[in-house]
């Protein structure tokens, strides 16, 4: 937002109206081209956002008009154990699933970055789970995780490990959701691969000439050159995991005993099952601010650890 060029607004006040008209003629095509998104932002984002902010200070059951209650909804959040349960579930998921997915997709991309025959076929295969609809993924994994006749436990028995309780116990249900999420690491693998391939080979050659071993080359070239990719995947991963909804809605709907009640699921329940729209709006705003804050923190600290090569755009 800081990139507003200061000379632009003043341009309209330029001396002659002829110059202003010329300016307008120059700008008009651009404004027309982006007008869909401007209207869309206004109608489907900004107006609803402000309305939602207003609702968050009201009690609103959809049937009768909203009634102003001040900060009551926000005050209630602080002492609502279900809200904190959902925060705990979401944060625990993000803290485990995002780094785990990042490391595993990174390793997979290294494996897929080989000059092997047919490697592009492998690359295509690992992306397939990403295009499988989330509803189908959830249905599928619900069957795989079934403790009695599911294949997950059959596999564990087969290799001599004890059976797992998967979705049936509060202690293990969230872990099962995390396992399911790892099925789609092909999405971030693609980003990793692009990063790996953008590293110029001469860097490795130069390092080799200087006598750097393989480990040192990875530590001093591969990882620093990949920090933008790590950064990109991290930001997207955080944003996505905090907004987790469809898979858990179908897979567990929050059960058992709210152990997989993600924030979005909680909001959906409050808003569209109990029709407490004001309270659900307050929760949505807290979630939005949390995402905004987290993203800002990652961006702010990125200067310290993300390396952008030269001024390549």
């Amino acid at each position: 937002m800081a990139e507003f060029r200061p000379d632009v607004p003043r341009a309209a006040d330029r001396r002659t109206s002829a110059a202003a008209r010329r300016r307008l003629r120059e700008w008009l095509p651009g404004l027309l081209f982006v007008s869909p998104v401007v209207i869309g932002l206004l109608l489907f984002t900004i107006v609803p956002m402000l309305t939602s902010l207003y609702y968050s200070f009201t009690r609103y059951d959809v049937l009768s008009p909203p009634r102003w209650v001040g900060v009551d909804n926000y005050a209630r959040l602080v002492t609502d154990p279900t809200f904190w349960t959902s925060v705990g579930v979401t944060v625990r998921y993000a803290l485990i699933a995002v780094p785990l997915g990042l490391v595993l997709s990174g390793l997979l991309s290294l494996l897929l970055n080989q000059a092997l025959r047919g490697i592009s076929i492998y690359r295509a295969l690992f992306y397939i789970p990403v295009v499988v609809p989330a509803v189908a993924t959830a249905v599928l994994f619900s069957n795989l995780f079934n403790v009695r006749y599911g294949l997950a436990n059959a596999l564990l028995r087969g290799v001599g490990l004890p059976e797992y309780t998967w979705l049936t116990r509060p202690e293990t249900a969230l872990n099962s959701v995390i396992v399911m999420s790892l099925w789609t690491i092909g999405g971030s693998t693609i980003i990793w691969l692009a990063g790996l391939r953008s590293i110029p080979p001469y860097l490795y050659d130069a390092a080799a000439v200087d006598g750097a071993g393989r480990l040192r080359r990875i530590w001093h070239i591969t990882i620093p050159m990949l920090t933008p990719v790590i950064f990109f995947n991290l930001v997207l991963g955080i944003i996505e995991s905090l907004q987790m909804f469809v898979q858990v809605y179908v897979l567990t709907n929050g059960a058992p005993v709210n152990s997989t009640l993600f924030i979005m699921l909680n909001i959906f329940r409050e808003g569209f099952t109990h029709f407490r729209m004001g309270y659900a709006s307050a929760m949505s705003w807290v979630l939005f601010l949390a995402i905004l804050l987290l993203t800002l923190v990652v961006f702010k600290t990125s200067g310290r650890w993300v390396y952008y090569e030269g001024d390549r755009s």
Binding site: F4, P9, W27, V34, T45, V47, F288
Partner: peptide
Amino acid sequence: NFPGRNALFIIVIATLMLPDTVTLIP
């Protein structure tokens, strides 16, 4: 070219951070 182009683009990208429920309820 038009005034506020970059600012507008940043706003468009920033909508990625907006949880669906913020806009869906209204």
